[in-house]
Design a protein around this nucleic acid. Structure first.
Length: 300
DNA sequence: CTCCAGGCAGTGT
DNA sequence: ACACTGCATGGA
């Protein structure tokens, strides 16, 4: 990959194993807006970025080389060699082949811990468009204004201190429903240090999961999403309904299998690459193999 | 109208 | 250990 700076834009060329749309739309993040095909506005780390991909080049508009190196390089995980990651996965398991090849451009983003925690607490029993809407509302009401693109204003996800005085009622106003007390608990525990990002990062994945599930409304699935997307723990393997369905189909000959069993299987099968396998399988299972159509067929 | 959504906590065996 | 239920809200 080559990096250059051109009239205020950071330009990446000869980009391999990356697809902007796949990476943003695969369900790991919620704080972005599609502007056109392969062009997005992304909010992260208190910044607003317009970014576009054209074949094997990526343009980050109106940013600095320093911001690229300090923020966007890690955010988009350009520092990792996904060619090697995919090769390693396929070497031990060619059941994954179709999923990996279909979703070949997915990167696992390195998102902010606090935003990831709150976002995935919100995600329970909700569809992705709803989650995005609530994240947007929280940012608008409690976060900082980051500026505008194409006449639309964008807001940073609120910080812990900006959320400290937000009440359960305020949160219900933002349509968080029964998750409102969960968010309050997560904010409190983060603010008073019971939940510390540094401690979570230092802990191994199993230990980290235990710490996170002390928060009300955080179970195994939310904790694993938080670890994979917000704490850079690539062996985390969130098991949700979609992963359950696709794994039952691919690895358990269609047999009903409980989530714990699937998680244990994934741990021995994929090990430190679990998170990557999970994300290829999740997106593939959801969009291609099982999809919304098949779900309707199942009902009839 | 009913059913379900990237689940979880609470309660009951 | 395991099964079952309620939960806010919006879309199909």
């Amino acid at each position: 990959m080559q990096i250059s700076y051109d009239e205020g834009n950071v330009v990446l060329t000869e980009v391999r194993d990356f697809d902007l749309a796949q990476t943003l739309e695969c369900g790991q993040c919620f704080h972005f807006k599609k502007l056109a095909e392969q062009e997005y506005a992304v909010c992260a780390f208190h910044r607003l970025l317009r970014i576009r991909q054209e074949k094997d080049s990526v343009i980050l508009f109106d940013t600095t080389m320093q911001d690229y190196e300090m923020i966007w390089r890690d955010y988009f995980d350009f520092g990792r060699d996904y060619g090697r990651i995919k090769a390693a996965l396929l070497q031990t398991d060619d059941t994954l082949k179709e999923a990996v090849e279909t979703m070949q451009g997915v990167h696992i983003l390195q998102q902010e811990f606090f935003e990831t925690l709150i976002s995935f607490i919100i995600s329970q029993n909700k569809q992705i468009p709803h989650i995005k809407k609530i994240v947007e509302t929280l940012s608008e009401r409690f976060g900082d204004d980051l500026g505008e693109i194409n006449g639309m204003r964008f807001f940073a996800f609120p910080t812990v201190s900006q959320m400290c005085n937000v009440t359960e009622e305020d949160l219900r106003d933002c349509k968080t429903g029964f998750r409102a007390p969960y968010i309050v608990d997560a904010v409190q525990k983060t603010a008073d240090g019971q939940i510390s990002e540094a401690a979570l990062k230092a802990a191994d994945t199993a230990e980290c999961e235990k710490m996170l599930t002390k928060i009300k409304g955080v179970g195994s699935k939310v904790a694993n999403c938080c670890m994979l997307f917000g704490l850079d723990k690539r062996d985390a393997f969130p098991v949700d309904v979609w992963i359950k369905r696709i794994m039952e189909q691919l690895y358990f000959s269609g047999k009903e299998t409980d989530k714990e069993k699937i998680a244990a299987f994934a741990k021995t099968r994929f090990g430190s690459y679990g998170g990557y396998a999970q994300q290829y399988l999740f997106f593939y299972g959801k969009t291609v193999r099982i999809g919304a159509q098949n779900q309707k067929i199942k009902k009839v």
